[in-house]
């Protein structure tokens, strides 16, 4: 997989957040962020990834909700992971602050998960739905997925913004709805390509057969690169 930032491999970034080794010398889990506008399917993607990967990997999830525990409670209800592997971070009405400007609570959460249920292979950090400029700090996550959906308007890839243009993976979700909302998928693909150059884009419908498989494959590649 093409890595956009050659410098952001293991060990890059602020000492406290991004050191690749835990204090006891073991390799810490790969941390993936999932961001994107409200209702685009971040939690559904997290849930599907957990179901797909939990038999082969040791997983945990951190959610950043606007109304405290909404997403965490959904994941708990769906029983995608045991409860001790899901932590909700409270964001004071500003998920983008908690995932980018002040990552201290999220760093606490990922470290506590590793201490409590580790060793972990992968921690998924979901941001509450926010605006198109909300991206994760490189001090918190190793790579980030930006999730938009076809129902939010097919001009979002054209509008761009840091999430769409710089995320390591762009997921265009709910393609099953495209005929119903009049979204032009080929135009979305062309716009995304223009904004992102070589960075990958996945079109996904969690309501159809393939489901989360392409995103899961991307995650496995990132994990292989992390361990290499």
């Amino acid at each position: 997989m093409h890595l956009r930032h050659p410098h952001d491999g293991p060990g890059h970034g602020s000492a406290a957040g991004a050191a690749a080794r835990r204090p006891d010398g073991t390799r810490r889990a790969l941390r993936l962020g999932l961001g994107g506008p409200v209702g685009s399917g971040k939690t559904a993607t997290v849930a599907a990834l957990c179901r797909e990967l939990r038999s082969e990997l040791s997983l945990a999830v951190v959610t950043n909700d606007i109304y405290t525990r909404e997403d965490a409670e959904f994941l708990l209800r769906e029983a995608v992971l045991p409860p001790e592997r899901i932590t909700a971070v409270e964001t004071g009405a500003c998920p983008h602050t908690a995932i980018r400007d002040d990552i201290s609570a999220n760093l606490e959460a990922v470290e506590e998960l590793e201490d409590a249920v580790g060793p972990l292979d992968l921690i998924l950090v979901e941001s509450g739905g926010d605006n198109l400029t909300a991206t994760f700090s490189r001090g918190l996550v190793d790579a980030q997925i930006f999730v938009i959906d076809v129902a939010g308007g097919d001009d979002i890839p054209r509008k761009g913004g840091p999430g769409v243009t710089t995320a390591d993976l762009l997921v265009v979700n709910k393609t099953d709805l495209a005929p119903h909302v009049g979204s032009d998928l080929s135009r979305m693909a062309a716009d995304a390509k223009a904004q992102r150059g070589p960075l990958p884009v996945v079109f996904q419908s969690l309501r159809e057969e393939a489901g989360v498989a392409p995103v899961a494959a991307w995650v496995r590649e990132r994990l292989a690169a992390w361990r290499a």
Binding site: V89, T91, G92, D101, D102, S104, A105
Partner: peptide, 11 residues
């Protein structure tokens, strides 16, 4: 208030 020490999540 922007010092990144978590205060933003508390009222």
């Amino acid at each position: 208030g922007r010092f990144p020490a978590g205060g933003h999540a508390h009222s």
